[in-house]
Amino acid sequence: MEHASETEVTDAGKHVRSLSHALQQVLFGQEELIQLVLAGILARGHILLEGLPGLGKTELVKGLSRILQMETRRIQFTPDLLPGDITGNPVLQEKDGKRQFVFQPGPLFTNIVLADEINRASPKTQSALLEAMQERRVTVLGETHQLPMPFFVLATQNPIELEGTYPLPEAQLDRFLFKLEITRNDVDTLERIVSDRDLGSEPEVNPIMEASTLNDVLALVRRIYLPDVVANYIARLVDATHPGQSESAGNIKFGASPRAALSLAAAARARALMNERTHASFEDVKFVAPSVLRHRIILDYNARVEGLTSNGIISLLLEEIPFQAGKNPRTLQQSVSS
């Protein structure tokens, strides 16, 4: 496959930068979150947004859908939601004097699905999303239906209201490229929100990118060059999340999967394009690693007792694993932190 040229990358980078600027008009003071959401979109990944109510999760997704000029559907997940309610159901219809089942597509058949409060649905309904997220198709009554391209699931969940919720199974968590934690805003940002917004009104955003342009950019991301040394760094990083493979993994019960490595590579490529580079770098991997790995490692009981979090352990891992493969002899010491 031919690698992306500098011209292509520069053009695409401009588009993405305009997307970023537009989203920053929707969500104030969350530049890094916006960068990660765009990286996730460019890497064709699904994103799980976790944060307290009112921080702008839904607003971000709605803004994204308007900017991208894509069809968006919102599914409010509740405990009584059934799988057929999201995938679609066969409906008995009479046509030409014959009765037959005709598939009625559900809300999944769209470009961007906003799965609001996804952890409130039953596991049965949550698992209905598995095939759609991984293979981008839905099978109902033995009949498979392709989902439109591109297809993204942007789910949100509330970390504190745990009553009546069903934690997402590990298999489904693994299908999310990123798990992004939305933090509260600082005083300056809050002041700006109060000044520029009214309660109940949505910000005005103009469409910036068409679906075809987005598909071109998505194709270009795959052509971003991933140097062997960066691939090696990703492999070592993912391997180090497993117990016994690194000092930092001492409190990890289960490490990240190969899907995590693929996700890291895709996200690093996307970020390289956002920075108008033809190749991914160590820094790109390091930037996206917490979002890719935090929901893919499972900590043991000791970690909970000691108050360790996934984020803390990932930070230790990133410090422990050097960019270059070889380790330093004891007669030399690191003069520059990577």
Partner: peptide, 25 residues
């Protein structure tokens, strides 16, 4: 070649040397 990676990592060259060695940049 390994030393080249070490240099680009420590000088924060964002793997420019690896890409250049590959003939990309």
């Amino acid at each position: 070649d390994h030393a080249l990676v070490r240099i680009e990592a420590s000088m924060k060259l964002r793997n420019k040397l690896s890409a250049a060695k590959h003939g990309l940049t």
